[in-house]
Amino acid sequence: MSSVIIENITKTYEKGIVKALDNVSFEVKSGELFGLIGADGAGKTTLFRILTTLLIPDSGKATVAGFDVIKDLKQIRQIVGYMPGKFSLYQDLSIEENLNFFATVFGTTVEENFELIRDIYVQIEPFKKRLAGKLSGGMKQKLALCCALIHEPKVLFLDEPTTGVDPVSRKEFWEMLGRLKERGITIIVSTPYMDEAKLCDRIALIQNSKILDVDTLEGILTKNKQNLFAVSSDNMYQLLKDLRAYTDAVSCFAFGQHHHLQVKTPTSSDEKLRAYLAHRNHTNVSIETINPDIEDTFIKLMQDA
């Protein structure tokens, strides 16, 4: 059964000049953990706002748990949880007061659904008397998530919940999403962290207001092969410039300890590249043939689009 159905949704701003969503269609199954992966301004937030009834599309149709996003506004607002990308809390209320407020609005109590938020809430609980306006960036994200969850929604929309969240908390956060999924909650989450894509059941790649693909991560990786080297040397900044100037290069980007070089010809031999880098006086050169991961793939798709 599908929990969210999106059919040919189009949305424009500024009297049609700016296209935010261009004929977007896909379905999210009930109980699925679904990722929305796309660059800044790709249209993710607009889609979230339409699905949570905060914005009306120009054309197209969408339903959430069988309710129509245009006609059944009241029902939808009761059953969805929404964590907007931009900060949504009352700055002049404390952590505790914000949470109580959201619980009351939905006719429930914090105690009743405490199990749902426990893992994240315990991290900010020692500061529960502190005003939201005085929390660090990541602490605010954690509070906003608790507020979106406190009424046990059937469908949860999370717009970049882990932006600004540190690596340890990000891990814990995704473990928590896994447990929410086990309780049968359908989750649609957008993220700028490509490594989080592998934690989703399926993902949609969205670019310039259009859906590029919807599939499992493996499916997307299989469809998008590329010839890729991971290269490092003693002078990484110079290396980046030299690799970009290499004749066989398609593109080159920094990936932490290595640069990923995409080349036109197969990567069966690295002799030519080795000679080129030696000629450019690089020392301690390491070259490895690698398979593209989701970040490589997304960069490639962004460039091709």
């Binding site: 660059a39 960036g137 932006t163 600004g164 700028p192 960069i299 962004m302």
Partner: peptide, 11 residues
Amino acid sequence: DEPTGGVDPIT
């Protein structure tokens, strides 16, 4: 202070 938080991979 977190200049790249939420920014896409290429940017």
